[in-house]
Lab assay of single mutants.
Amino acid sequence: MDETGKELVLALYDYQEKSPREVTMKKGDILTLLNSTNKDWWKVEVKITVNGKTYERQGAVPAAYVKKL
């Protein structure tokens, strides 16, 4: 869990989004888990830093590609 009490997951593999509802992640990324009720796809929040600014993006990733921490 992070400092706000939200559950975290670890990306076990790289994943490139294939639709606007998904998010890209790299192996080793730590993501915030938002919903894991679907056994195949979990909704997560990814933090992306671009030019020193951090953005948050929500989307789905394959459940088999992440592990709860």
Rank of each mutant, 00 (worst) to 15 (best):
M1F: 13
M1D: 12
D2F: 13
D2T: 13
D2H: 14
D2R: 13
D2A: 14
E3N: 14
T4Y: 12
T4N: 12
T4V: 13
T4K: 13
T4H: 13
T4E: 13
T4P: 14
G5Y: 12
G5C: 15
G5W: 10
K6Y: 12
K6N: 10
K6S: 10
K6M: 11
K6H: 12
E7P: 10
E7Q: 14
E7R: 11
E7C: 15
L8W: 14
L8E: 06
L8F: 14
L8H: 08
V9D: 01
V9E: 00
V9I: 07
V9L: 09
L10P: 00
L10C: 12
L10V: 15
A11R: 02
A11H: 02
A11I: 04
A11P: 02
A11G: 03
L12F: 02
L12H: 02
L12V: 06
L12G: 00
L12C: 12
L12Y: 03
L12I: 09
L12R: 03
Y13K: 12
Y13S: 07
Y13M: 11
Y13Q: 12
Y13W: 10
D14Q: 03
D14W: 06
Y15Q: 02
Y15K: 00
Y15W: 09
Y15V: 01
Y15C: 06
Q16T: 14
Q16W: 11
E17F: 09
E17C: 12
E17L: 07
E17A: 15
E17R: 14
E17H: 08
E17T: 07
E17P: 14
K18C: 11
K18H: 07
K18T: 11
K18L: 08
K18D: 05
K18N: 09
S19A: 07
S19H: 09
S19P: 04
S19Q: 05
S19M: 05
S19F: 05
S19Y: 04
P20Q: 09
P20A: 10
P20F: 09
R21Q: 14
R21N: 15
R21H: 14
R21I: 10
R21L: 14
R21C: 15
E22W: 05
E22Q: 10
E22Y: 05
E22P: 04
V23L: 11
V23D: 02
V23T: 04
V23H: 03
T24H: 02
T24I: 05
T24A: 05
T24M: 04
T24L: 03
T24V: 03
T24S: 15
M25I: 15
M25K: 00
M25G: 00
M25D: 00
M25R: 02
M25V: 10
M25L: 08
K26V: 07
K26C: 11
K26N: 06
K26E: 04
K27N: 02
K27P: 02
K27G: 03
K27E: 05
G28A: 02
G28K: 02
G28C: 08
G28M: 03
D29L: 05
D29M: 13
D29W: 12
D29G: 02
D29Y: 06
D29R: 03
D29F: 06
D29N: 05
I30V: 11
I30Y: 04
I30E: 01
I30A: 00
L31N: 00
L31F: 07
L31Q: 00
L31T: 01
L31W: 03
L31G: 03
L31M: 12
L31D: 00
T32A: 08
T32H: 08
T32I: 14
T32L: 14
T32P: 13
L33M: 02
L33T: 00
L33V: 05
L33N: 00
L33E: 00
L33Y: 01
L33G: 00
L33C: 05
L33H: 00
L34A: 02
L34Y: 02
L34V: 11
L34R: 03
N35V: 06
N35L: 07
N35H: 07
S36T: 09
S36E: 15
S36W: 08
S36L: 04
S36P: 05
S36K: 08
T37H: 10
T37P: 03
T37I: 10
T37C: 14
T37W: 08
T37G: 09
N38E: 10
N38D: 15
N38Y: 07
N38W: 05
N38H: 11
K39V: 10
K39D: 10
K39E: 10
K39S: 12
D40F: 15
D40E: 11
D40L: 13
D40S: 11
W41S: 01
W41V: 02
W41T: 04
W41K: 01
W42Q: 00
W42R: 00
W42I: 04
W42C: 05
K43C: 15
K43N: 10
K43Y: 15
V44G: 00
V44F: 02
E45W: 06
E45C: 14
E45T: 10
E45I: 13
E45A: 15
V46G: 04
V46Y: 08
V46F: 07
V46H: 07
V46M: 09
V46W: 06
K47I: 12
K47M: 10
K47C: 13
K47F: 09
K47Q: 11
I48Y: 13
I48V: 13
I48P: 00
I48H: 08
I48C: 13
I48E: 08
I48T: 09
T49K: 10
T49P: 03
T49E: 11
T49W: 10
T49S: 10
T49L: 11
T49G: 04
V50E: 11
V50A: 09
V50D: 08
V50K: 10
V50L: 11
N51F: 09
N51M: 09
N51S: 08
N51G: 11
N51L: 08
G52E: 06
G52R: 02
G52F: 05
G52M: 05
K53D: 08
K53Q: 13
K53A: 10
K53Y: 12
K53I: 14
T54M: 09
T54K: 07
T54D: 08
Y55W: 09
Y55T: 10
Y55N: 05
Y55E: 08
E56F: 15
E56S: 15
E56P: 13
E56G: 12
E56H: 15
E56V: 15
E56D: 11
R57V: 08
R57A: 06
R57I: 08
R57E: 01
R57D: 02
Q58Y: 07
Q58T: 11
Q58K: 08
Q58G: 03
G59M: 09
G59E: 01
G59A: 04
A60C: 15
A60Y: 15
A60W: 15
V61L: 02
V61E: 00
V61R: 00
V61C: 06
P62H: 04
P62Q: 02
P62F: 07
A63T: 05
A63G: 03
A63R: 08
A63P: 04
A63L: 01
A63S: 12
A64W: 09
A64T: 10
A64S: 13
A64N: 11
Y65N: 04
Y65Q: 03
Y65T: 06
Y65L: 14
Y65C: 15
V66L: 15
V66T: 01
V66I: 07
V66K: 00
K67L: 11
K67W: 08
K68T: 06
K68A: 07
K68V: 11
K68R: 12
K68F: 08
K68E: 05
K68M: 09
K68Y: 08
L69Q: 03
L69G: 01
L69T: 04
L69R: 02
L69I: 13
L69Y: 08
